[in-house]
Design a protein around this nucleic acid. Sequence first.
DNA 1: TTGAAAGCGCTAACAT
DNA 2: ATGTTAGCGCTTTCAA
Lengths: 342, 342
Amino acid sequence: MKDLARDLGMSVATVARAFHPEATVAAATRAAVLSRAEVLGYRSNPLARAIITRRTRIVGILLAEMDNPFYPEALARLTAALQEAGFNAMLVVASPGQPVEAALRLLLSYQPEIAVSLATSLGSEAAAACRAAGTPVLFLNRHPEDLAPDAMAIVCDNHRGGARVADHLIEAGARRPAFMAGQADTSTNAERFAGFRDRCIKRGLPPPRHIHAGTFTYKAGHAAALSCLRGAERPDALFCCNDILAAGVLDAARRDLGLRVPEDLLIAGFDDIALAAWPSYDLSTLRQPLGRIVALAVEQIEHSARGGTLAGGIIRIPGEFIPRGSTARPRGDPAPEQEQTS
Amino acid sequence: MKDLARDLGMSVATVARAFHPEATVAAATRAAVLSRAEVLGYRSNPLARAIITRRTRIVGILLAEMDNPFYPEALARLTAALQEAGFNAMLVVASPGQPVEAALRLLLSYQPEIAVSLATSLGSEAAAACRAAGTPVLFLNRHPEDLAPDAMAIVCDNHRGGARVADHLIEAGARRPAFMAGQADTSTNAERFAGFRDRCIKRGLPPPRHIHAGTFTYKAGHAAALSCLRGAERPDALFCCNDILAAGVLDAARRDLGLRVPEDLLIAGFDDIALAAWPSYDLSTLRQPLGRIVALAVEQIEHSARGGTLAGGIIRIPGEFIPRGSTARPRGDPAPEQEQTS
DNA sequence: TTGAAAGCGCTAACAT
DNA sequence: ATGTTAGCGCTTTCAA
């Protein structure tokens, strides 16, 4: 910048101003600076700026569960949207062997404008570290039970989604629906189940069985299906808490247990990951409004970066049910609403 | 830091030295500084340091094709390994609507120690931008045809891998094997095909047909399979350039064309993504040595960050063939090597 | 072994 | 509208 200023016969201050749209510089001066900068290949140094302004244009993304395809999809879209808004994404991944906490410390020292938590539960120590660093936290998709008053969460309306799935399964003929849970202590799990259960009961069915897979993985879904779908008392419909779980269930049902889907068992998922649309799964699912979630998130990040404060609380965005073959009503039965009276 | 120094009655210089293992400070002084820093929650600011040392501890990761599960897996492992080594990963994603070029400019202004290209082809303008910024580039998994002399690539030994798949398919009874290509202009595609073809010819088979799917996606594999597996002249074995392609092929073959795998058609893939081990796919594949690739990459990044120069050129690491049901030899036929003479 | 001082690339009053 | 000056948090000579 000094060089550029010398080259142009101006002071560094003037040159600096040319790079700030809101600064007060003569249009001609700005044009001259910018064009010369272009020629010399000069780009202002965001690190130096960050030291003074404390605005890094860095967004820290905390991610776990890379093995659930929903998260790579969400990450790709979020990162792309951030790029477009002129933010840089710093990625931290948590895994069994790598707790977020350590990496989070490193991340926070770069003074991200905000931390976005995708799937990480972000323990209280981690949350405290963010608070101490003055970094606001935005939760996407999941939120902790004890959401700090100044933290914000943007999630799918899981309760409503669960209810919507219940409606669909019941209309497709389900009489003994069950719910398959992934990781028990997650908000997604609790909310989707609650919505599903409430609606089942409201429509006159017994409370759906709660099957515990343990994690949101194909393997867990597969294993849980093997143990819960044997015997005569098996459910006739299964709402899996997410699609990757449902994929495991579907394979177990068809290949290992010889069940026909949807004739013997209706299966629905949640998320609408790419695989749900593959012909071999053809999975009915509640599609997450990823586009809207990401757009809203970036909006909030920009607001926060401008110095605004995050509205605390949880924003719930409704998803859309996508009916597919895994719950197609067999033999064109009419929806048997009348049976609710029994 | 100034505060810390005042608190301790030392100069900032001494305090600064305490944070550099190689700096010359009295052991007692260092201990005092570090323990007090811990108490006060002080962490040195990497941004300020970066301005002077030009060492940011930032690694820029350029990524495309988030829809091929191989890349999320690779990204997760790379990021985790970088974290452990004290680096921070800055992620830039390319997509049809979002060319890397724009985001790369933003990224480079943060002075990453190195740029890691995962799947991005990184056009010549982009490569030039890196060169201009003095940022070395490390290619993972794929490398450009015209690899710059100072650029390095770490990839699976695709040629050898292709040959290994050929061996396996031939031993499983293949007589008219074919190759399904994804994106034509990629090194992975070219090398895997070359290895496969050479070995087929060497073992007395006609040159394998080259089927062009166009992209490395499930959908492309599915569509290409539908058009190439009809009719009597169809291949009896298909080596798909990667697993996600193979998944599409498998589904098309079984569900749409009524073919039995492996009885009517042998199918092999490449990568060994999670899905390949699912019972519904049970896909034989060449497993990429991701652990070794990542380890070597981090090693090189550390070397480069220490001021060392990257050894230019391509490092090829052999993969491991994982036989599964999609190529299990039907009816226990002995491998008919003798037919090679015909 | 430590301190003083200069400076990294930039911003932000304050003057002019 | 532009220049001057001080300083962000840190490193790094150079002297002591």
